[in-house]
C-alpha cells in the first residue's frame, strides 16, 4: 500500500504500528503449547521382509555409546541409561525372546546409542541410514571381526538439535548370509525434550515396543 497518498503524516505511522501489533499478537507458537511429553517422538523402523519369530535369543550392550560433538565419543552408563537397558530387556523378554550372553551366539544383538549434540545452527541429515553417527558399536563387539553394518534405505528424518536415543537391533543369526554384514532389522529413535530423564525412559521404551507389535517370537 502506498502511504504517500495520505495527506496526514500521522496515518502511516499509526497504521504501521497497528499492523505490527496485530501481526505479532495473532500468531500462536506451536512450541509454546507443547508439554515435555508432547515433544517426544517415538520412531520405529523395521525390515518388512523379516519375520521376527525366526529369532529366539538376544543380547544387549552393557553400556550406552555416547556420540557427542561437545563431549566426544565414548561409552557411558548413567542411571537413565541403566534404566533404559533394563526396560529394553524386560520388553524383549515379555515378547518371548531369551536374554543370553553375547558369547552364547545370540540371534539378535541390540545396540543403544545416545546422541547428544549441541548445534548452534540448523543441521539436516539427508536420511537416517546415511547418517554417519551410526556404527559406533564396532561389529567386533559382537564377535564379528571384519564385518560391517548394513543400514537399509528408508524414511527421511528431521534435523538434530538435542539429545536422543537410538536403538538398533542387529541380525546376528544371518550375518554370514547377509554378505558378512550385521543387518539392522529394527531401529527405534526416541527424540524430543529431556528424553534422558531417568523417570521418563520406562515410558519411552514402552511406547516404542507398543508400536512394534511385530516384535514377537510366536
Amino acid at each position: 500500500m502506498k502511504y504517500q497518498k495520505f495527506k496526514s503524516a500521522k496515518w502511516p505511522i499509526l497504521v504501521a504500528i497497528t499492523f505490527a501489533g496485530l501481526w505479532m499478537g495473532c500468531q500462536k507458537d506451536p512450541m509454546n503449547n507443547l508439554s515435555i511429553d508432547d515433544t517426544h517422538l517415538y520412531i520405529t523402523n523395521y525390515d518388512t521382509t523379516v519375520n521376527f519369530a525366526n529369532y529366539k535369543t538376544f543380547s544387549i550392550v552393557d553400556s550406552v555409546a555416547l556420540v557427542s560433538n561437545t563431549q566426544g565419543n565414548s561409552r557411558e552408563l548413567t542411571p537413565a541409561d541403566q534404566a533404559l537397558l533394563q526396560a529394553i530387556i524386560s520388553q524383549m523378554q515379555s515378547r518371548g525372546y531369551v536374554l543370553v550372553d553375547k558369547s552364547q551366539n545370540p540371534d539378535l544383538a541390540i545396540n543403544v546409542t545416545k546422541v547428544s549434540n549441541l548445534y548452534t545452527g540448523v543441521s539436516i541429515y539427508p536420511g537416517y541410514w546415511d547418517n554417519p553417527l551410526y556404527g559406533y558399536w564396532d561389529p567386533f563387539y559382537w564377535g564379528y571381526y571384519g564385518y560391517s553394518y548394513y543400514f537399509p534405505p528408508t524414511y527421511q528424518f528431521y534435523q538434530v538439535n538435542q539429545t536422543y536415543y537410538t536403538i538398533d537391533m542387529l541380525d546376528l543369526k544371518n550375518a554370514a548370509k547377509n554378505n558378512n554384514q550385521l543387518k539392522v532389522i529394527w531401529n527405534a529413535q526416541i527424540r524430543g525434550e529431556a528424553v534422558d530423564d531417568p523417570s521418563a525412559v520406562n515410558a519411552e521404551i514402552q511406547a516404542v515396543f507398543n508400536q512394534s507389535a511385530y516384535l514377537k517370537t510366536m
Binding site: 517415538y42 520405529t44 518388512t48
Partner: peptide
C-alpha cells in the same frame, strides 16, 4: 511402510 512414528502433531 516399514516405519511408525508416534507424535503429537501441531498443524498450522
Amino acid at each position: 511402510p516399514g516405519s511408525d512414528i508416534s507424535a503429537v502433531q501441531t498443524h498450522v
